[in-house]
Design a protein around this nucleic acid. Structure first.
Lengths: 282, 282
DNA sequence: TAGTGTGAACTTTTTCACAGCG
DNA sequence: CGCTGTGAAAAAGTTCACACTA
């Protein structure tokens, strides 16, 4: 993302495509599972299935790492685990701090998979003085005042932000000033960070909205297709999704105000073009 | 992902690129913030900055939705909020169930932004009988036995899985059989689902591993560049990241076993090619 | 005049298909 | 023979740059 791709063509031909990097952890997980079952080798086909990708893509991905397979046989599981781990930088362990120990932060702190693979929670940090010293996941929560000290004393370069949205930008600035160069952001905000700092975000509501988009599309197509293709097992008798039966009394009210005023002018421009049913203001 | 792109070219030219769909929630959030500050219009430049993308991309994205801007002026905030909301299917509200009320599930249930934008938590479900009836986020946890009933009675089409990895596949199957067609998966597993079901995954450890990759790369480049480019404010005197000063005594031990046995054979093939320092077995 | 909307160029990612090797 | 490794083609996504218009 902010990995300054333009001004340095990587130390040689060592440029692994970003899309590939993003899949390596997937392969690694699948391989680890195989390793635990003492499976000695896998074919690209099998491994791809386990990782949920297609085999051509997997082979191409691996080809960026080197020729680690054996033609006619497949890949040596242990060896590949090692190579991918190394490529991902998991042969060393990374101290990580979690900032914001609310519901989510605490859940993250308790998450086992954290320490499992090369990461170590070095500290939990929260701005609430009442939290200070209280143990979460067997570790005392420390106060934000000590953030800089904690970062530098532990050589932390990866920070996890689980604060409310309002605090996230400021926290990121302090983390970065203290030496952090990679941030995993759970707060629903866009962080602006200097070049050379990587940010990845995890956002529940964005993911849900993407699903809603596809869900809506499905509902539309289903309706259009009438009774031809079998609907994927519609629940009760009614239209299924578009109209939520009032469980807790929350009727399907429009969650968003229809436009009015100056918006109406813009609206006129396109008019209620096809696809738009109901909800559209009169 | 599993959106069967091959066997139906979408109902016309209504094909909004997936990459664009993934950004719409971002724009929506930025627009909502502007709306709350009663800003009437924004330029692509301003909005793009707020959403953390560049303006050309934003304009292109919007062009897939229609011509909603005004040349020389910009976009009407309210109107755009409405259009994007509609496009994403947020003008109706979507009942959602959360399965797996552990640390994470509870955190999700408590997450405000959930209900804020078109989503309503219809039920919390857990397999642990001890959890049944206990209130979480002001809502009684229900037992997995009633999963199917809950789904169909509430017309739920979106499910969130926050169970341990081992349970996730089975839970997804039950959800799908009961009528769910979109799943947000927090469990660290690949779910295999039938065509027509969308799955999005959120995976902490994958994100961290991707960050570690870039972090490692940075450390490498930094070392290579010697004292030329100024390191992004190195904490204490030493090399910064590659070597974590023993805070809690956890030295940077190799987290992964070096290969051996049959792996060694494969190793010989490539030999200890350049880039690989230390850690490599003798 | 300021800023949208968009063809066209370019980049990245995916897929195909098959030569080549153990 | 079976399966990897990879060029080459196709598709998807991004960026450029400018005509156009409110």
């Amino acid at each position: 993302m902010a990995t300054g791709r333009t001004h340095r063509p990587a130390t040689r031909s060592r440029g692994i495509p970003e899309a590939t990097v993003a899949r390596l952890p997937l392969y690694l997980r699948a391989l680890t599972a195989l390793s635990e079952r003492s499976v000695p080798t896998v074919s690209s086909e099998e491994l791809a299935a386990a990782a949920g990708v297609n085999s051509a893509k997997l082979r191409k991905d691996f080809s960026y790492l080197g020729s680690y397979g054996t033609r006619g046989v497949g890949y040596d599981v242990e060896y590949l685990v090692y190579q991918i781990s190394r490529e991902l930088g998991l042969t060393q362990d990374w101290p990580v701090v979690i900032v914001g120990i609310g519901n989510l932060g605490a859940a993250l702190a308790n998450y086992g998979g954290f320490s499992a693979r090369g990461f170590r929670v070095a500290a939990l940090i929260d701005a609430d003085p009442a939290m200070a010293g209280r143990p979460v996941a067997g570790m005392p929560v420390q106060h934000t005042d000590d953030l800089e000290k904690i970062i530098s004393e532990n050589g932390v370069s990866i920070g996890v932000i689980a604060t409310p949205a309002g605090a996230a930008q400021q926290v990121s600035e302090r983390l970065i000033a203290a030496g952090v160069t990679s941030i995993l952001n759970f707060a629903p905000t866009v962080l602006s960070v200097p070049d050379g700092v990587d940010v990845r975000k995890v956002d529940l509501s964005i993911e849900l909205q993407i699903l809603a988009f596809h869900e809506q599309r499905k509902a539309g197509e289903e309706a259009a297709a009438a009774g031809s293709a079998p609907a994927p097992s519609a629940p009760s008798g009614d239209g299924g999704v578009a109209d939520a039966p009032g469980g807790a009394g929350a009727a399907p009210v429009a969650a968003v105000e229809p436009p009015a005023g100056r918006a109406a002018a813009a609206l006129r421009k396109n008019g209620p073009e096809g696809e738009v049913p109901a909800v559209m203001p009169a």
